[in-house]
Simulated scan of single mutants.
Amino acid sequence: MNRSATVALTALAPISWGSTYTVASELLPPDRPLFTGVMRALPAGLLLIALSRTLPKGAWWWKSAVLGALNIGAFFPLLFLSAYRLPGGVAAVLGSAGPLFVVGLAALLLGERAQLKTVLAAVTGAFGVSMVVLTADARLDLVGIAAGVVSSASMAAGTVMTKRWGRPEGVGPLAMTGWQLTAGGLVIIPIAALVEGAPPALDGKAFLGYGYMMLINTGIAYWLWFRGIGQLTATSVTLLGPLSPLTAAVIGWSALGQALSPVQLVGMAIAFGATVAGQLFAGRAQQGKPSREVVRSFSSAEGNAHNVSMDLTGEPVRR
Rank of each mutant, 00 (worst) to 15 (best):
1 M>T: 14
9 L>A: 03
15 I>N: 07
21 Y>D: 14
23 V>S: 04
23 V>D: 11
24 A>I: 11
25 S>A: 13
49 I>E: 09
51 L>S: 11
51 L>D: 15
54 T>H: 08
69 A>F: 09
70 L>A: 05
72 I>T: 01
77 P>S: 02
83 A>P: 06
86 L>T: 09
87 P>W: 12
88 G>R: 00
92 A>F: 06
96 S>K: 05
97 A>E: 07
99 P>R: 03
101 F>Y: 09
101 F>D: 07
101 F>V: 11
103 V>T: 05
105 L>T: 02
108 L>F: 00
112 E>C: 07
112 E>A: 00
116 L>R: 15
120 L>G: 08
126 A>E: 06
128 G>D: 05
138 A>P: 10
139 R>P: 11
139 R>H: 14
146 A>F: 14
149 V>I: 14
150 V>Y: 09
151 S>Y: 08
151 S>T: 13
151 S>R: 10
154 S>F: 12
158 G>E: 08
160 V>I: 07
161 M>Y: 06
164 R>C: 00
168 P>M: 02
169 E>F: 11
173 P>E: 06
175 A>Q: 04
177 T>A: 01
177 T>I: 08
181 L>F: 01
185 G>K: 02
188 I>N: 01
191 I>S: 05
192 A>N: 00
197 G>A: 10
198 A>H: 15
208 L>I: 10
213 M>A: 15
218 T>K: 01
218 T>C: 02
219 G>Y: 02
220 I>T: 02
220 I>R: 03
221 A>S: 04
221 A>Q: 01
222 Y>R: 00
222 Y>F: 01
225 W>E: 08
225 W>C: 13
226 F>I: 14
228 G>A: 02
229 I>S: 09
230 G>Y: 01
230 G>L: 05
231 Q>L: 10
239 L>T: 06
241 G>P: 13
244 S>P: 11
249 A>F: 02
250 V>E: 07
252 G>Y: 03
254 S>M: 08
254 S>V: 14
258 Q>G: 06
262 P>C: 06
262 P>Q: 10
268 M>H: 01
270 I>P: 04
270 I>E: 06
271 A>D: 05
272 F>Y: 08
272 F>H: 03
273 G>F: 04
281 F>H: 13
287 Q>Y: 12
288 G>E: 06
297 S>P: 10
301 A>L: 09
302 E>Y: 15
305 A>N: 06
305 A>M: 13
307 N>H: 12
312 L>F: 07
314 G>T: 05
315 E>M: 15
319 R>K: 12
